[in-house]
């Protein structure tokens, strides 16, 4: 196989990796906020259910979680799902896992906010929702950006875990080509692509952080 062909196959895989990456972020960032609010809820049951969910997501390998989401419907309910379900299962697995991590980051950020901000808003007559959306959340976002960046970068590398349920993202593609060609070149090329992907994301996040640096 010619190098351009290899690269093309890898790029096809990269597109899938990118889809996993983007869809995971689009769903898990907002879901994480909702989970964080549930985790801080005054309701005993909500709070503890969320606590257990977070603990399972953080306490077991993502690879295993992906397998449970993919094979679970068949083994538990006897459902046979179409081949397309593979990709959906990957997204569900990643979103559930990352939402748990993001939730803990949000929670840390929200809990680090000084009580004076809430009190000032209350005396000024803001409603609870206004206080959260206008005063607290924007400041929390700035505070948690470095941790979120870390998590996003981990996510890029984690997309390769989709290979366990044979979703043909870049790593799966690299593995397939490497074994058929008996060559390490596909791995090296894939590594380079991951690195470039990471570099672009890290650069973007740096710009976002700069945008928030207009105040301390």
């Amino acid at each position: 196989m010619e190098l351009p062909v290899i690269l093309l196959k890898l790029l096809e895989g990269l597109l899938v990796s990118f889809q996993i990456f983007a869809l995971t972020l689009i769903f898990s960032l907002p879901l994480g906020l909702i989970v964080a609010l549930g985790r801080m809820s005054k309701n005993f049951f909500i709070r503890n259910i969320i606590k257990i969910y977070i603990s399972i997501m953080r306490g077991t390998p993502l690879m295993l979680q992906l397998m449970v989401v993919y094979f679970g419907p068949y083994y538990i309910f006897g459902w046979t799902l179409s081949r397309d379900y593979r990709f959906i299962a990957v997204i569900i697995g990643f979103v559930l896992n990352y939402a748990a991590y993001f939730a803990e980051i949000y929670r840390g950020g929200i809990e680090s906010m000084p009580i004076g901000q809430y009190e000032a808003a209350k005396v000024l007559g803001y409603t609870k929702t206004q206080t959260f959306m206008r005063i607290i959340l924007p400041q929390v976002i700035k505070r948690i950006l470095p941790s979120v960046t870390n998590e996003i970068i981990t996510l890029i590398k984690d997309t390769s875990l989709a290979f366990v349920i044979s979703v043909s993202e870049m790593f799966t593609a690299a593995k397939a080509i490497a074994s058929s060609q008996a060559s390490v070149i596909p791995y090296l090329a894939a590594g380079l692509f991951y690195y470039i992907f990471n570099y672009i994301v890290a650069f973007t996040m740096e710009c976002v952080e700069k945008k928030f640096s207009y105040y301390r």
Binding site: G116, Q117, A120, G125, Y215, R216
Partner: peptide, 16 residues
């Protein structure tokens, strides 16, 4: 609530 205002010792301005 709108009848009164409060000025805090440590200001509590909104930094953002």
């Amino acid at each position: 609530q709108s009848y009164f205002g409060l000025v805090f010792q440590n200001f509590n301005l909104f930094p953002h």
